[in-house]
Simulated assay, not measured.
Amino acid sequence: MKPYQAILIRDCGEPMVPIPSDRVALVQPHPYQVLGAPYGDQSPYCLRSGVLAALLQAQARLQQRQPGWKIQVFDAFRPLAVQQFMVDRTYGEQVQARGWRAEALTTVQREAVMAEVIQFWAVPSDDPATPPPHSTGAALDVTLVDASGAAVNMGSPIDEVSPRSHPDHFAASSVAIEQRFHAHRTLLNQVMAAAGFCRHPNEWWHFSLGDQLWAWQRQQETGRQDFLAHYGRASVDLWVQ
């Protein structure tokens, strides 16, 4: 259990709404759908209405800083089945990257791989008290595109399981291109934070507002213990028809 999962949830009941592709950029086709992730009839490009409003505020701030640039949403909502699909896939990739065979792993090896995976992926939970952040409609993975629509180089791809994914990995670098990577990550964080989002401690691309992780981070930042999660797992009846 991660520390933030102890945060109490009092879901405010906000609806899930689609992210407008004319206001922010969306990765098309969706990366996990291409892999065969089981979304069914639920769109990955949906958020709670209050979270979407904050995202559009962040986009407006980005326009003030870098005219023509857009926030690009890589991923937002994930059903639990998709979360499990991606955890299993990432686990398999990490086993393969080590040159191991899944069926021959020792207990120590399995635990070592999973420890690395869960730095970046929340283990799916059916318990309504501990939903994965992306299953709440309050978390999203984002990057930047410039005025021509080209991806801004952030120094590592989204979902990379490596130290390069940590937000401040390039902060102390004296290499010019790596300084640029850090500047891009800082810009993204600044516009998102100004709209109320908190960035994941291990991932430059993951931001949330109102979920358990967000509330836990706000507690750590302020020393106040009265931050609660506004959003729990998004149920089917929250979708705007």
Rank of each mutant, 00 (worst) to 15 (best):
K2P: 00
P3H: 06
L8A: 13
G13P: 10
G13E: 07
E14D: 15
V17F: 04
I19Y: 01
P20Q: 03
V27F: 02
Q28S: 11
P31Y: 08
Y32T: 03
Y32C: 01
Y32H: 10
A37T: 08
Y39H: 01
G40L: 02
Q42D: 11
S49G: 12
A53G: 09
R61K: 14
Q63R: 09
Q64H: 11
Q64G: 15
G68C: 11
W69N: 12
I71N: 08
A76M: 01
R78F: 01
R78K: 15
R78N: 13
P79V: 00
P79Y: 04
Q84M: 03
Q84R: 14
Q84S: 04
Q96M: 10
R98L: 11
R98T: 06
R101S: 12
A102I: 07
A104C: 09
L105S: 11
L105Q: 12
Q109W: 02
R110A: 05
Q119P: 07
F120R: 13
F120E: 10
W121Y: 14
V123H: 06
D127G: 06
T130Q: 13
P133C: 07
S135V: 12
S135W: 06
S135Y: 07
A139P: 08
V142S: 02
D146A: 01
V152N: 05
S156I: 14
P157M: 03
I158N: 12
I158P: 12
D159L: 09
V161F: 04
P163H: 02
P167S: 00
A172S: 13
V175D: 08
A176K: 11
E178V: 04
F181P: 10
H182S: 10
H184L: 01
H184C: 06
T186E: 00
T186M: 00
L187M: 13
Q190I: 03
V191K: 09
V191N: 00
A193D: 09
A193L: 01
A194K: 13
F197D: 11
P201D: 05
N202R: 15
W204N: 14
G210C: 04
Q212A: 08
W216H: 15
G223I: 05
Q225N: 14
F227H: 14
L228V: 15
A229C: 01
H230S: 14
Y231L: 07
D237A: 06
V240R: 14
